[in-house]
Computed example of a mutant assay.
Amino acid sequence: MHDQLHRPAITVHDDFTICRCDWCETLLSPDTAVCSSCHSTEISRTGSPGCGSIVSWTVVEVFASRTSNDRVPQTIAIVALDEGPWTYAWITGAPRANGKAPIRVRYHHMIPGEPYPMFVLQATR
Rank of each mutant, 00 (worst) to 15 (best):
P49Y: 02
Y116V: 12
I43F: 03
S37M: 05
P95C: 07
E61Q: 15
L28N: 12
C38S: 04
P49G: 00
N98F: 07
V59F: 03
A33W: 15
L28G: 10
F119L: 01
H13T: 04
I91Y: 01
T87Y: 10
T75W: 07
A80I: 05
T26A: 14
P30I: 02
C24S: 02
M118Y: 03
P95N: 06
T17W: 02
H2Y: 14
D82S: 04
H39M: 15
N98M: 09
S44K: 11
D70L: 15
G113A: 01
D15S: 14
D3S: 10
I43K: 09
Q4T: 00
Y107T: 02
P85R: 12
C24K: 09
G47W: 02
I18C: 10
I10H: 06
Q74D: 08
T46C: 11
V79M: 13
P8A: 05
D22N: 14
I43N: 07
C21Q: 08
T26L: 08
S29I: 00
P85D: 14
S53G: 10
A94P: 00
T75S: 03
T32S: 13
S44T: 09
W57C: 13
R71N: 14
V105S: 06
R106W: 06
W23H: 13
P102S: 04
N98Y: 07
A9F: 02
C51P: 01
D70R: 15
E114N: 02
P30L: 04
M1E: 08
G47F: 05
C21W: 05
T87V: 09
S53Y: 12
C21L: 01
W86F: 11
W57K: 09
H108D: 14
D14K: 05
I111A: 12
N98E: 15
L121D: 08
V55L: 03
S53H: 15
E83N: 05
L81G: 01
I76C: 04
Q122C: 15
P117H: 11
V34R: 13
C38E: 03
D82H: 06
T87K: 10
M118W: 02
T87I: 15
I43E: 10
R45K: 14
E114I: 04
A9Q: 07
S48H: 13
V120R: 11
S65I: 08
E83C: 02
I76R: 07
